[in-house]
Amino acid sequence: MDRFRPSYAVFSVPGASSIQLGQFSSPALSDKLAPGRSSVINPEDPEEKKMLFSVLIYASEDFMDAVSPEEHDEIMRHHRAFHEHTKGSKTFASAIKLMSTGTAVTVNKESDDYLVTDGPFAETKEQFMGFYLIDCPSLEEAIDTVKLLPLEHGRVEIRPVEYFEGADFKNAERLVIDAS
């Protein structure tokens, strides 16, 4: 049961690599994926054209609960390859594995009341917009903190993180990448 259920959200940051999807009509995949290789899009200023991408992973928890240790290793092999590639090409920013949806609570606001419901946010009418990572001592505090958000216009799901890998966000210098 200590299996690593891979539901990461992985972000890429500016680095040495310059993979930029959507810029070429049909480049060879091997070209794009060669680590450290530059398929630079804007020779004048490659850094400026960098874009952060979130990679959101969806999978069935019923299925992930049923995989054998061997199958789990097989899944993790792909994740390790992803880590190796993105770290080698300095596109890696962070990896986040969320805990099961069983741990989730959802917070919303109706008129002036905050409503905390158990379970993940499961509607399909709304779309995933973005997320914060916050470091709180308890679920209770996390719930209080998210009440600062404009919950009139949406809901937030709070899901604890099981595994985090990335820059030391508590001590590192602030980095802002604003695509707008």
Partner: peptide, 18 residues
């Protein structure tokens, strides 16, 4: 196994809110 403990404790906290 600290991973299982972490998940267990947060589940418990979520349960106790009720």
């Amino acid at each position: 196994d600290r991973t299982l403990i972490a998940e267990g404790i947060i589940l418990l906290e979520a349960a106790l809110r009720k």
